[in-house]
Amino acid sequence: MSAKQYGMLIDTTRCVGCQTCVVSCKINYQVPEEAYWSSVETIGSEVMYQPTGKYPHPVLAFRPRLCNHCTDPVCVKNCPTGAMHKDENGIVSVSQEVCIGCQYCVWVCPYNAPKLDTVQNVMSKCTFCQGRTTKGEKPYCVESCPAEARIFGLISDPHSEISRLISAKHAQPLLPHFGTVPSVYYV
């Protein structure tokens, strides 16, 4: 485990499914063609924006998804080239100049996080906005969320705001049973 680990806390009770996070990431990183580095799902529903349950009491709830920058990332372990790697901040990134585009990282990732860059034919993915966060700026998805549903910070530091909130709100990671030790927590 890297000493430092950035993570995110997402409060789904605040999410209205607008996908501003998804779109800001897409546009601001110029993610090409059909690829999006993040997504939003309608909880319990196959069709986006279709609620579950029956009228007049249907339930509409959303869950944003992104790379979990796992502490034990299976994509890194299973990448044949070593292009997928974890850095000193705990951020999982792909070296596009090394990647062969086998897409096996997509297969092994329970979160479907790496995305094929269909222009360059190599993988691309959420970087936790490394370039911004090192300058003290928030990731695009955090900054753009109109509901302020996301908090970014050092989860490896037990005294950080995010660590405090994760424990106060009893936030849980998604699909923890895969053992990848994800760094994105949900309320």
Binding site: P80, T81, G101, M123
Partner: peptide, 21 residues
């Protein structure tokens, strides 16, 4: 041929522990 970058196939051996390698 199913690789995005076919001619980089030699890179596939850089992590011998991976199942693809």
């Amino acid at each position: 041929t199913h690789l995005g970058k076919t001619f980089r196939f030699l890179n596939a051996f850089r992590n011998p522990g991976s199942m693809i390698a």
